Amino acid sequence: MKNEKEAIVKQTYERLIEAWNQRDAKGMARLFTENGESIGFDGSQSKGPKEIYSHLRPIFKDHPTAPFVSKVKEVRFLGDNVAILRAIAGMIPPGELDIKPDVNTHHTVVLLNNVCDWEIDLFQNTPAQFHGRPELVKKMTNELRGSFNVPISGD
C-alpha cells in the first residue's frame, strides 16, 4: 500500500514537471489544492489555482522557458493523507544539450490526499547555488546528468 501511495505521489510531481516542460499553465495550476501555493525560483508566490495560472500564463507566453530534468530524492508520509516529496532539478536551455548548473534547484512539494487524488498544497522551487562550494554544484549537476543520460562534461 505504501509503495502504491508513493508511486502516485511521484506521478503527481511528474505531472507538474511535464506541465512545466510543455509550458502548460492550466495543467500546472490544476494540480494544486484550492489554497495551494507555488513559490518560484525568484521567490515569487502564487496562491490557489487561479493565481498560479495567472502567474504562469505570461511566463510561458512571453519567455522561452527551459525544460526541467529532475530526480526524486525522497518521499515521506506525515500521515495517511499528507506527503512531502523532495527532488533536485536542473534545466537544459532551449537549443542547448546540457544542464545549466547556475539554475539547479531543490524542489519541495507538500501533497494532500483528497477523495479523488493527491494534490499539491505547496511547491517550493529553491535555488541550489551552494555559495562558495562549487564541488556541490558539480555533484548535483552530474547526478542530474546521470539520471537522464546527459553526457557528463569536464566542467
Rank of each mutant, 00 (worst) to 15 (best):
I59E: 03
N125I: 02
V115K: 12
F60W: 06
T141V: 05
V103T: 09
E135D: 13
H107E: 05
A89P: 02
H107D: 08
Q45H: 12
Y13H: 06
K5S: 12
V69K: 07
S38Y: 07
D155K: 14
H106N: 11
E119I: 00
K139P: 03
D155C: 11
Q11P: 00
D62G: 02
W20P: 00
A66Q: 04
R145L: 08
D80H: 08
H107Y: 13
E37I: 12
E96F: 11
D102H: 13
G146S: 09
R86Q: 11
N81S: 14
A25M: 00
S44P: 00
V72I: 13
V115T: 11
G40V: 05
I52C: 00
F77L: 03
G27T: 03
Q22F: 10
Q129T: 15
L111A: 08
L78R: 12
K10L: 10
I152H: 07
V110L: 09
K2A: 15
F130W: 10
H107C: 06
E143Q: 08
P94D: 05
H106W: 13
I8N: 08
T105C: 13
K26H: 14
I84P: 04
T65D: 05
Q22W: 08
M91F: 08
A19C: 00
V103S: 07
V103Y: 05
D117Q: 13
E18S: 14
S70P: 03
A19F: 04
P134E: 09
V9H: 03
N125C: 02
T108D: 05
F148A: 14
P58L: 06
Y53M: 10
E51G: 00
V110W: 00
I52P: 04
E74A: 14
K61Q: 13
N125Q: 05
G154F: 15
I52H: 00
N35F: 06
A66Y: 02
L31Y: 04
I152Q: 06
N35M: 09
Q45M: 13
N104Y: 00
I120M: 05
E135T: 07
K138A: 11
T108H: 07
W20G: 04
N149A: 10
A25S: 02
G48R: 01
E37H: 07
W20Q: 02
N35E: 12
Q129L: 15
W118E: 01
F41C: 03
S46A: 15
H107Q: 10
R145V: 11
I52T: 06
N3T: 15
Q11A: 13
R76W: 13
P49T: 08
N125V: 01
A66W: 03
A87E: 01
H55A: 11
F60K: 03
L56H: 05
P49L: 06
G48S: 05
K71D: 12
Q45E: 13
I8S: 09
E4K: 15
Y53F: 13
A66R: 00
S46T: 07
Q129S: 15
L112A: 11
Q22M: 10
N113M: 11
D117C: 09
I8C: 05
D155W: 11
N149G: 06
I39M: 04
L97I: 12
S46L: 04
K138P: 01
D42P: 01
N35I: 09
M140R: 04
E18M: 07
A87V: 07
